[in-house]
């Protein structure tokens, strides 16, 4: 492949502009380790594992981070101000295709005293910043004002039913997350979602085994995501709290304080109003760790991360942006190939 100057120039210009933006806003840039002995358990993410060989001959596992979250939150809990990081992240088991790589560059930031919705304002400014630094004449569908759409509005418009009504019917909103009663409510939601899929003749997995979380994603991906409007960047807000994340719940509702940003139909960013309550953090950790342990037939090590976070983490909102995807979309590309400095098939043969 002949040497291409543009991807270098655009990427460097974008990083510089993002750093300038956060510097002006008083954020500190972090440079946290790529290796960790204790990643945050996320049962849907497969990690790259390596072995550390100690001088005494013992071996201990280390993992490449799937995001810098595990470190940045520890820094916040220890009193750091608002933070950001631009760094490589690693996800094993992913297909390498148009918009997926197993190694990619993520911008992650945490704004103190921000909510997910106020953080969307920062996302808009970053989008404008990146566009100005690379391709200022980019069209509205990439560089325009972010349209906000709640998950409920999206379901009503594109799936033709009220997701909120289904979630309310199960009683989920009124029950404390992770309690036994909550799990019974999740079973009720699963039944409702299965009926929704069946009546549309859509694959619903095995009745009684499929989780409410997976059934929600089946409905969302089959009926909603593909139909989202493409004429402007779109933030899909207020995701169901039953999707297990570290986003805090919106009290008295079945929703979590979370949005995802889509540009030209491609998922570019994810944001939470961060969970800081110890019980919820611990319940998240235990649930995900036990899922991983049962899938891998091993124990998941626990260093008391939830308690350390809960002890000092301030109210904040964190967002993560896939910078490779964002840059490719601004360039008008239909995949990530134009940014590869080495053809991906040459360095990652099947």
């Amino acid at each position: 492949m002949p040497f291409q100057r543009e991807p270098f120039r655009e990427r460097a210009a974008m990083y510089r502009a993002v750093r300038d933006y956060f510097d002006r806003c008083g954020y500190m840039e972090a440079d946290t380790p790529f290796l960790t002995p204790t990643p945050i358990p996320e049962s849907h993410i497969e990690l790259f594992q390596t072995d550390r060989h100690l001088p005494d001959g013992t071996v201990s596992p280390l993992y490449l981070v799937p995001s810098p979250e595990v470190w940045l939150k520890l820094l916040l809990a220890s009193g750091a101000p608002s933070l950001y990081q631009i760094g490589k992240c690693f996800r094993n088991g992913e297909q390498i295709d148009h918009w997926h790589r197993i190694e990619f560059t993520m911008l992650e930031w945490y704004g103190l005293n921000e909510s997910a919705m106020s953080n969307l304002g920062i996302m808009q400014e970053i989008l404008i910043t990146c566009v100005q630094a690379t391709k200022p004449d980019v069209a509205e569908n990439v560089g325009g004002t972010i349209r906000k759409l709640t998950m409920e509005e999206a379901f009503r418009e594109f799936a033709g039913f009220s997701l909120e009504a289904d979630l309310q019917e199960s009683g989920l909103a009124d029950i404390r997350r992770h309690s036994p009663e909550y799990h019974r409510a999740l079973d009720r939601v699963a039944n409702i979602f299965t009926a929704r899929l069946n009546e549309r003749n859509l694959p619903a997995g095995y009745n009684g085994i499929e989780t409410a979380d997976d059934l929600f994603h089946r409905l969302f991906l089959s009926l909603v995501e593909d139909a989202l409007p493409l004429n402007r960047p779109l933030a899909l807000t207020h995701w169901p709290a039953l999707v297990q994340t570290l986003a805090r719940s919106v009290p008295g509702t079945p929703w979590a304080e979370r949005w995802e940003l889509y540009i030209r139909g491609v998922e570019v960013a994810n944001c939470y109003g961060e969970e800081t309550e110890e019980g919820a953090l611990r319940a998240y950790w235990d649930t995900e760790a036990s899922k991983i342990a049962s899938a891998t037939d091993s124990t998941y090590s626990d260093t008391g991360w939830p308690e350390r976070i809960a002890e000092g983490m301030p109210s904040c909102s964190g967002a993560a942006v896939g910078l490779d995807r964002l840059l490719a979309l601004i360039r008008g590309d239909s995949d990530l190939k134009g940014l590869d400095l080495f053809p991906i098939r040459d360095i990652m043969p099947r």
Binding site: H44, D97, F216, H217, L221, D226, N270
Partner: peptide, 24 residues
């Protein structure tokens, strides 16, 4: 699928940020 024979013309992987992996 549904007792009808099909050929796959397009396949796209979809990995929701916080969910199982899917194929469209």
């Amino acid at each position: 699928e549904k007792n009808e024979p099909f050929v796959v013309n397009e396949r796209e992987f979809v990995n929701p940020g916080k969910g199982s992996a899917f194929v469209r």
